[in-house]
């Protein structure tokens, strides 16, 4: 477990970038936190770290957006899903080549294994990022941050 605080959007993006730099094909990051916590902002940083050029904006409306980068980024918001279902072939993406970033992942938790979990909360105007994992592939990332 590792806890990191950021003071503003720029620092959150910088943190995301560091995480993105260390990501590998097939990695899954789950982001959990209330509306406005900074899930999409952190994802913008992760995208930069993955070399994504396009604007990363909210995936809420379409559930998932795919971006080309050094490794592809699959950005998902599963707030409106109850279980993984069949509509999206989400499992093909989650266990595909790219890096999956899943917002509101608790809604599909039965379908997820081997991921880096990031809980985001707001404390006195700062963002608190708590990173945890039970998969050794991500240990190096926690150590390096």
């Amino acid at each position: 477990m590792k806890t990191i605080y950021t003071r503003n959007v720029e620092e959150t993006i910088e943190l995301g970038k560091l995480i993105g730099h260390m990501m590998f094909s097939g990695a899954i990051i789950t982001l959990n936190g209330d509306l406005g916590a900074g899930k999409t902002t952190l994802t913008k940083g992760i995208a930069l770290g993955l070399g994504v050029k396009r604007v990363v904006n909210s995936p809420t409306f379409t559930i998932m957006k795919v971006y080309d980068g050094r490794i592809p980024l699959y950005h998902m918001d599963v707030y409106r899903l109850d279980g993984i279902g069949f509509d999206y072939d989400l499992e093909d993406y989650l266990y595909g080549e790219g890096v999956s970033v899943v917002e509101w992942s608790d809604n599909i938790k039965d379908s997820l294994e081997g991921f880096l979990r990031i809980d985001i909360s707001i404390e006195n105007g700062n963002r608190k990022f708590t990173l945890s994992t039970d998969d050794s592939r991500y240990n190096m990332i926690l150590e390096k941050l």
């Binding site: 902002t41 604007v55 904006n57 909210s58 409306f61």
Partner: peptide, 9 residues
């Protein structure tokens, strides 16, 4: 275009 949330969202 929007850099994050759409207006309706």
């Amino acid at each position: 275009c929007t850099q994050d949330d759409a207006v309706g969202e």
